[in-house]
Design a protein around this nucleic acid. Sequence first.
RNA 1: CGGGAUGUAGCGUAGCCCGGUUAUCGCGCCUCGUUUGGGACGAGGAGGUCGCAAGUUCGAAUCUUGCCAUCCCGACCA
Length: 492
Amino acid sequence: MSKAITKRADDYSQWYNDLVLKSGLADHSAVRGCMVIKPYGFALWENMRDQLDKMFKETGHVNAYFPLFVPKSLFEAEEKNAEGFAKECAIVTHYRLKNDPENPGKLIVDPEAKLEEELIVRPTSEAIIWNTYKGWIQSYRDLPLLINQWANVVRWEMRTRLFLRTAEFLWQEGHTAHATKEEALVETKKMLDVYAEFVEEYMALPVVKGVKSASERFAGAEETYCIEALMQDGKALQAGTSHFLGQNFAKAFDVQFLTKENKQEYVWATSWGVSTRLIGALIMAHSDDLGLIMPPKIAPVQVVLVPIYKGEESKPVLDGKLTEIVNGLKAKGIRTKVDDSDHNRPGWKFAEYEMQGIPVRIALGMRDMENQVVELARRDTQEKKSVPMEGLTEYVSNLLNEIQIAIYNKAKSFREEKTTKVDTWDEFEKVLDGKAGFVSAHWDGTAETEELIKQETKATIRCIPLNNEAEEGVCIKSGKPSKERVLFARAY
RNA sequence: CGGGAUGUAGCGUAGCCCGGUUAUCGCGCCUCGUUUGGGACGAGGAGGUCGCAAGUUCGAAUCUUGCCAUCCCGACCA
């Protein structure tokens, strides 16, 4: 019975959904718009989280934790931020249930237990954090304050999608305070670089670093930097953001410090975050019709070993050899799994671990024992070959690195092939509807034109790339002059 | 919240139009045995408020009404 799933443009959503469910990363939950992250999916998230955490610490940040609930009065303090999130908040209004007098055995919300002030379940933590920072910052000596938190947040989206847009999701959010604008800007860009490095090096996913147009900016930010990735259906995905918040939150929460010169000044702020959405990006960018493809550096299991028994007497022989191989791999820090269960046959196991995207599979049978080889299959290219047992650990270790690079290069050439420069409106529409992907085009810089383009084509400005070259041109829509190209795409 | 579709076992489904035995089939699950180089085979077995509620009827998975949920398309978004 085949579990194969097909990736076609017209049912990409279905393909994606099947992949998430069948690979064992996550399940739909009983709660609307939420998901259950299963152990395999969580192991992946832990690997990503640990690596990011390490990178945050290397750049001088420390972790802390702030409350889930934000009193409404704090939430509304920074007006733009509050307005931006107002339409997607879960709100706690009561604190007690009681027995339903009309319905024995059932509970109702106790109307007596209404909160005087509603609590907002954080959709992001700027408000509660800046309210706290107010008490922590008095002097320039308290700065910079470089704090990150790993947390869950809730955004009551109309439409949800596994990993990409769930009502509750896991993320990290960094919130920093600085004495000067320049320093805060450096921090904003530094963290964008950290994200780009993580996503490219560890997730093998090339990204475009850029800055958002005003209308795509984070609510309450002066400038939003982002990394944008391209999925296999030609749609773009925002993979991470880093915001320069100016003094907006400092002013809203009255966070001032005394400078060396004994002057009161408002602090400068940044915030930055990535979420479990990155897992969605990983799935959509690398997978094929056989299932997931995990980049070795973050794969929960890097090598799976499958013995192929033949008769009772083969078991101790093969098990012994497998233990030896596994010990060698483990000594090199390689994450392994041995599947010696006898209720599934080898063919079943092969298909199953391909679905899970385990980068390397080693099969060992009596035939191999005679020849002192193993059968080694790599997930990304589906190549199979016999490799001598002698020097196997070294071979596998090198292969994992090679696979990591190969996956990245594949995704990168895909993106390059799907990035098109266009100079006319006709061409613009044609590319979006046919080839899709990123479209690099001139834009007059106005929100009106941006909105018009969005209305007519559903394409948005993903970003203004940071490494952009100055180039004189005319806007594809309005014909007005433009100094640089921006990146358009349809997006998730 | 607008437009469309769908709810039958863990999953996928037949039956519904035209009401009538014990609700169909496949996968998965459990037991025993034989197997194991690409998703094994045989025998036996467990598992169901047919989304919920009300109505019509001698009788409802099937007809009617209301509600709920899910998915897809819009608006919104990490």
